[in-house]
């Protein structure tokens, strides 16, 4: 079994706060993965708020927020466990994030140990 990180991206910070229905939809999606025993890590949400996000660049340049040029930010991640990247992509496809214009990056995890 391989592990893949699913990295969620959104374009608009106003989409970040989900409605109860969206929340429920997300939870159902996650529980579906968990109940196939394919959820390796439930992951976390990454806050895009000004107070909670900074970007550090060379020469001590620090900017507010997670983004500067592209108006796209990472909103969270989870790690799933599948045999192939194709299977991971299939799982990602059914996420409700696409309804609000978000996208998902699927990346194989290389374990450090």
């Amino acid at each position: 079994m391989k592990e893949f990180a699913l990295i969620f991206r959104l374009n608009n910070t106003t989409d970040f706060k989900p409605s109860p229905e969206q929340m429920q939809e997300r939870m159902n999606w996650l529980a579906g993965i968990a109940s196939q025993n394919k959820l390796a890590d439930k992951g976390n949400t990454l806050l895009p708020t000004l107070a909670g996000a900074k970007t550090v660049r060379p020469n001590n340049v620090i900017s507010d927020g997670p983004y500067t040029e592209i108006k796209e930010f990472i909103s969270g991640y989870i790690v799933i466990r599948t045999d192939t990247i194709e299977e991971a992509v299939e799982i990602a496809k059914s996420n409700p994030i696409f309804k609000i214009g978000g996208n998902i990056e699927v990346r194989e995890v290389l374990k450090r140990d």
Binding site: M27, N28, L30, A31, A34, S35, L39, A40, D41, K42
Partner: peptide, 9 residues
């Protein structure tokens, strides 16, 4: 569902 997701870390 909620607890199942929490069980996966």
């Amino acid at each position: 569902n909620y607890y199942l997701i929490h069980a996966c870390s």
